[in-house]
Design a protein around this nucleic acid. Structure first.
Length: 351
DNA sequence: AATTCGGGGCA
DNA sequence: TGCCCAGAATT
């Protein structure tokens, strides 16, 4: 799909005009110039809606006003602040990048696209966002909004999750970028995708780009963009033994390469079926199978986690395989848990 | 090139 | 329910 200069001009000019006139929702990271805050907001917002990320952003800024504070914070404290936000490798990479900036760059965020891109957890999108918003560098962002807006406006049916698609859209948006005002362009195209050219129920009747929009012209708005990959959801059965001795509970940190890495959980027995079978009993001094006191289903992108929780009161701490710690209930708030575990805490009549 | 990393909002 | 969200890293 070759783009004419006329088309590029119309698109970019009208998009920027729309953005200038539109009173869109103000968010704390908009019109922000501190690269630390912009970077932090972008990491939090990866695959995350603004409404969901906003309270986390506010708590992070309050707790860690600058990159040194974040770099020097205890890892467990940062994870506790990230608890519930998901994609926890973002948190791990956030800490690593903060330490790189704090130590290698002495707290001075690099004003260089390649150096920004080299930071842990920073890919093409985030590097372009920070480079443009913080330093006014001419790098166009390519996120879910941009794919959608461009696929529809130019009538592109290339699969957006293919290598060819990424390349095609990346080159296109970079051509469309107004190098005189990269920050405004990037903000505009993402805001436009979020509020006008929405995934469902796009506001085509009032859209300022509709006159030149290929998808609108061909009545293909709901067919674009095209994604190729299908996701397969695996069912997993977790049996959590809430082992208690006095006012202490046994928890362990998930270290394996799996979901919820670095978060804490109870003693886990994972099986291939919903009901616990004789022989699945953990070596925890349990002589007979207890009945679950609570159940939970959590849907992740690729997995459905079905959990049963068993309350087990013990006289003395048993010998358990692997690593783990006994924690007083009052101190559980210092550890980061996945939502499945939090759902157990939040249930009525806990302990 | 394909998978896998959370969790929530929406029709 | 299925799709999507200010994506990135790993295999």
């Amino acid at each position: 799909m070759p783009t004419t200069l006329t088309a590029r001009t119309f698109f970019t000019r009208n998009l920027l005009q729309w953005h200038f006139e539109e009173n869109d929702r103000q968010l704390p990271w908009k019109n922000e110039t501190d690269p630390y805050k912009i970077w932090l907001s972008e990491i939090i917002l990866q695959q995350t809606r603004a409404e969901q990320g906003l309270p986390y952003y506010q708590r992070f800024i309050a707790q860690y006003p600058d990159v040194h504070r974040l770099a020097d914070a205890p890892e467990a404290e940062v994870f506790r602040l990230w608890q519930g936000l998901g994609y926890y490798n973002r948190c791990r990479n956030l800490i690593a990048a903060a330490q790189t900036i704090s130590r290698d760059y002495k707290g001075r965020f690099p004003a260089d696209y390649e150096k920004i891109l080299a930071l842990k957890g920073v890919g093409n999108y985030t590097a372009a966002a920070v480079a443009s918003f913080a330093f006014g560098l001419p790098y166009a962002v390519l996120d879910g909004n941009v794919y959608r807006v461009l696929a529809r406006y130019f009538g592109i049916d290339t699969e957006t999750d293919s290598t060819a698609g990424k390349k095609q859209f990346q080159e296109l948006v970079q051509q469309l970028l107004d190098p005189e005002q990269p920050a405004a362009f990037n903000q505009a195209i993402m805001d436009f995708g979020a509020s006008v050219c929405k995934p469902k129920a796009a506001a085509c009747t009032t859209c300022v780009l509709a006159p030149e929009c290929q998808a609108y012209r061909r009545d293909m708005v709901d067919l674009l963009p095209v994604k190729g990959k299908k996701i397969k959801v695996t069912e997993r059965y977790f049996h959590y033994f809430v082992l208690q001795v006095g006012d202490e509970v046994f928890i362990r940190q998930r270290r394996e390469k799996d979901i919820w890495q670095d978060l804490f959980e109870f003693y886990l027995v994972e099986t291939g079926q919903a009901t616990l079978q004789p022989g699945d009993i953990p070596p925890a001094g349990i002589t007979q199978l207890p009945a679950p006191v609570f159940s939970n289903r959590q849907r992740l992108t690729h997995q459905l986690i079905i959990s049963d929780f068993y309350l087990v009161g013990l006289e003395k701490k048993p010998e358990l395989p692997g690593e783990g710690i006994w924690v007083k209930q009052a101190l559980l708030k210092n550890y980061a848990f996945p939502k499945t575990i939090l759902s157990f805490f939040n249930r009525k009549n806990y302990f």
